[in-house]
Design a binder for these strands. Sequence first.
DNA 1: CATGAATGAGTCTTCATTCAT
DNA 2: TATGAATGAAGACTCATTCAT
Lengths: 237, 237, 237, 237
Amino acid sequence: MKMAKRPPGRPAKSGRREEILRAAAQAFSVGGIAGTTMGAIARQAGTAEGTLYLHFDSKDALVEAVIAGLYDDVFPDIMKLANADSPASARLLSMAERHLRIYADDPPFARLLLQHMRAIPDYRSSNLHARNQRYAAVFLGVLKQGVASGEMRADLVPRVARDALLGALDYRMWLASVTGRPISPEGDARALMDLLLGGLVAGASAAGRPGSARARASSGSEAPGETRPRRSRGGPA
Amino acid sequence: MKMAKRPPGRPAKSGRREEILRAAAQAFSVGGIAGTTMGAIARQAGTAEGTLYLHFDSKDALVEAVIAGLYDDVFPDIMKLANADSPASARLLSMAERHLRIYADDPPFARLLLQHMRAIPDYRSSNLHARNQRYAAVFLGVLKQGVASGEMRADLVPRVARDALLGALDYRMWLASVTGRPISPEGDARALMDLLLGGLVAGASAAGRPGSARARASSGSEAPGETRPRRSRGGPA
Amino acid sequence: MKMAKRPPGRPAKSGRREEILRAAAQAFSVGGIAGTTMGAIARQAGTAEGTLYLHFDSKDALVEAVIAGLYDDVFPDIMKLANADSPASARLLSMAERHLRIYADDPPFARLLLQHMRAIPDYRSSNLHARNQRYAAVFLGVLKQGVASGEMRADLVPRVARDALLGALDYRMWLASVTGRPISPEGDARALMDLLLGGLVAGASAAGRPGSARARASSGSEAPGETRPRRSRGGPA
Amino acid sequence: MKMAKRPPGRPAKSGRREEILRAAAQAFSVGGIAGTTMGAIARQAGTAEGTLYLHFDSKDALVEAVIAGLYDDVFPDIMKLANADSPASARLLSMAERHLRIYADDPPFARLLLQHMRAIPDYRSSNLHARNQRYAAVFLGVLKQGVASGEMRADLVPRVARDALLGALDYRMWLASVTGRPISPEGDARALMDLLLGGLVAGASAAGRPGSARARASSGSEAPGETRPRRSRGGPA
DNA sequence: CATGAATGAGTCTTCATTCAT
DNA sequence: TATGAATGAAGACTCATTCAT
């Protein structure tokens, strides 16, 4: 509620604050959140325990800040990819890839995220929920565009698709963190998108197949205009 | 004084244990595992704290028992559905339904499961991991059968499909637990399976449509779905 | 205070009671008093926990009874030896021997005794204190007789001698229990009595030497009358 | 609020630790070790319970520190007395005196020592055992010197003598702590040494008499002791 | 801004004792 | 008498948080 006030205009990098954030992320990813004491974080950061409270109001605030930091790293990337000038399917592929890279880049940290997300007592009111929704909304937007443009099935329920995609992505990362089996952002994202785009049923998704999500997704670089058909959903209609 | 006198003839047996299990699940799901004290569980169960330790060696053991109980409830059902005499897709649908019913039947309990699964320090060596793998293997088996029988795409990677399915299912439940939005096992399972079977891409999954969710699956190919190829902007277009 | 009432006239061997006593002694000597739970004792005795309380009012009472039992075993022996028809020194030797046999006979049990004796919060008011005093008094008596008969130094302070003897005996046993070095009741008693009778100083106690406490004390089996010269301290004098 | 404000310049250091040590010794000696809770110690020390753990890892560690502190106080003294330039018997006397002063100086503290010594589960591996052995070794050394120099009986078994001495000393203190009868370090040490040096047997220890406790000991061998061969009933008789 | 000793509420767990059967 | 499930009062220890310097 009351976050350590950072001078409104300031670049948000008191140096110390960043150090602590880094140290906390590091410590959390090693021992889990509950298993990490403020003392351990302070030691890791090379400061005194009291100093932690000069920058964060509580351990919870620190945890939130650490995780929020991740979103702030990833969100801009996802945003950019979502607005790229390519078919929805291609954009989703790249977004999935970026998402999986969260894990590939820093497995321990990702594990932390995976665990914490579901452990927050009142997640709904946490500001993490907000960030997460914002994040998920981007995926939803792309899916809607895909439908609107006719690229995707008209009877597709975007929300269902979004949940399936994000759920599968999360699950894949969790599996990786649990089994130790490494993730290949490109490979895994492509495999998943192939599945999702084309479906399970044989003979189906003939259309989805020609190159499928494969390669840089459906064919390649048609007219940018074609990309976001906005509405053109008509088709034969 | 505390408990209603137990009918003289009653075995005085498992009753307690079940009561505690129930109370614990209830308490955990409200306040989270870490946020629930043994005292609270005892109070909820109407027993003394010490009694808890008569039935479970430790808090951790209690937690495990609570969760293991769930698997033991669900597993036989899933097993039966997996061996039913129907197309793989139909079986998967029913399995997904059953899975979602975990949540529908007892949301707090399900939330507990969702939370805990990712919170175990050394999940890999926990006996929960084993149960979970056994569970996931059943889904994998059905998918492989689907491929073998030609019902599903020959180039399908069963493991990817299984992860997508379970991940989507989990995510759906988690969203429900977080947003409070209720789950309709049938509706949601069908929506998800429609998506997964037919894929995202327009024109694809012609076969996947017949009657939606192809409840009876691969029933045929009247292909009303094919009707709306969308804009077919993909392929050669 | 309120000991389980044993029918006043009864032989004191309800069978069950003895079993419990035995089981408790056994358990205590293995795990120490504090480290032994009533549950463990019950198991060892083959009864239910509640049954323990039918025979003893509390754990403390049980402990006391166990230890008192030892005194009741040893006391008669000591008493008899103290009243034997032989010189005080010979009698002390045999008493010391018997005392050390407490350890030799059952080391774990003796260790228990050694430990417990000093651990009782209000030893003074415990009935163990009384027994112990009665026990020590026997040694004191023999020493006094030794002085009175002229066998021992007239300026000997019996109480000091008694404390030295019992202290040395206790210490020897404790050392044995701590180092594991076994005790030889005869050998060790003799060594100690040799020391005590003759003293440390060279040239001193020449008289104490000729066979000293050695063998069955002073030479052998002279006329019983000779045994307790009472005073005859003259000699060449 | 709780503590008198500490003078600004004070090291704020070891003070606390010592206070705790003192409080713990005090509390232990009143209620016994097991009977004293960390809370009680904290209260006694005027600190919070948590503070105890800032200075000691556990209750056991605190107990050990308390007792080790005693040894560290006494050992140097004993060492110095053992190396004094006087007959072995005189040195033993002063050492015995110092030893008894442990009790005289702080009865409750001494009682604690007496009790605890025998209560440690695995005393042998405790570092108290090491200290105790070092301590006992000093006595042994002096005795050996006594024998070597001819001051003491050539057939003396030093180890037996040492055990008798320390055992008697311990016992004396224990009796004092149990009966409340005060100890006079000088008087009691002398009485005990008189006994030990001269032996029990009449006529013996003539040498042991000269000034009692043969303060200066081995003053000579006027051997009045030899004078009272008692009944010399031994030998060829 | 920094420090770190001090705080003390809160946790899990144990176990002697009771009592309904 | 016997049983053993239930009790609940303690106790040792942890750790986020504060505050005097």
